[in-house]
Nucleic acid binder design. Sequence first.
RNA 1: GUGGUUGUAGCUCAGUUGGUUAGAGCACCGGUUUGUGGUACCGGGGGUCGGGGGUUCAAGUCCCCUCAAUCACCCCA
Length: 445
Amino acid sequence: MADIQSLPGFREFYPEERAILGHVFEVWRRTCRRYGFREWESPVLEPLELFTEKSGEEIVRQLFNFEDKGGRQVSLRPEMTPSLARMVGAKANGMAKPIRWFAIGENYRYEKPQKGRLRAFYQLNADLLGEAGPTADAELIALCADCLIGFGLQATDFKIRISDRTLWFKYLESQGVPEANASAVLGVVDKLERGSPADLLQAMNIALAGTKVDAAKLLADVRTFAAIRSLDDLTKVAGSDAAMQARLTEWQLLLSTIASLGFSECVTIDLTIVRGLAYYTGFVFEAFETSGDARALAGGGRYDTLVKKLGGPDLPAVGFGMGDVTLRDLLASKKLIPAYADGPDFFVMVLGNDVRPSALEDVAKLRRAGFRVEYNLRDGKFPKLIQSAETAGAKFALIYGTDEVAKGVTKVRSLVDRKEAEVPRADIIPALRAVLEEGMDAIIP
RNA sequence: GUGGUUGUAGCUCAGUUGGUUAGAGCACCGGUUUGUGGUACCGGGGGUCGGGGGUUCAAGUCCCCUCAAUCACCCCA
């Protein structure tokens, strides 16, 4: 056991683990490319102000920040969106809109680690900038769904709950809540499912301090409003409120676009989702697994003011993040993690030091041709070597003994069905390429 | 940050009311007479029993502290 352990909340990935991570990255990347998104990357370490300026004091204590040797206040990135906003903002004027970008990177936050929640985790970020209309939100929600479906998950395994901070603000306005108190009230809404009635009422009283709104009544109204699950019911509640009705036509476009793209059964209206993050401005959504814990798999929404706040142009934007930790837990429980297979194509069995030069000559030749090749570094006996080939995970063994080398051939042995055939060493590249593609039949006379 | 649970070889665990050089299975390495592999048998390496301190003639076994994992709360980018 090593004396020095890895830091709490940080993971080590042995090859088997790294292969799973690679699979996750691969599905994310492939799916985003299918939607026309392009990959970007930003520094892992950023000036502390990038994250504190917009997020406020509460988030500072969760930042993985410190002072560097030059006396700079720096922080590992807790998310990639501020970096994205800065990068896009700097060059947005010259970029074709809409901008479709995605990134896969490790993010950090200094918190007490728990299952599904670490100090370092990988996350997919997909963002669409330059389009303010709901069609952009729909595109991102579709991409989010496809990023989950790409792993083999069914539409019934998860649900994307869609909510709307704009609609909430319009609703609260219609209930007489001053604009200044609206955010605090949404904070209470966020806790509706978890808090006790007494705590919620107290929280609501604090949120409404200095106003004439009745806390108990608003709490009841808000609870009812949050429970609405259909556009029709929302329209009824909106009644003659023009602002809310206008917003609901946006909803219609959002939902019809999602339907046209074929993702109706993946989404549901759920106004209990408000998301804590301060910079969200419009539609927000979270993807949950439908079984068991119902943990959040992904979350995102519209942040139309962030780019400008960070010094860029006035650029509307919508995006989401999807972490690897919870996703992996879900894939494991659904048995959707592919078997680990990372062996070489060929294991060259060098039977004796007399033939070693000839064997290594072919090893090098095969490697230059792009094959994955391993061989025994030390001399060994036949049964031992064939077992080595097996445990290395090779598909085929290439036997180099004195007989074979004398005849100018190598013997190919399938480690799966144990068939054997000889191949002239002069033809080794095309012959083995055929073996990999068509199997042993390609060289069995 | 607060509280509960857990911590013995790479993995899964045994270790009796504290008592001699801490064990098993799997895994790994080697061998079973020298060119054909998932079985069987034999052997080997590997643990300062998470770390530190204390009680005792004696502690993996009891007490305290600490570290880590995990669960709940908090918070969620």
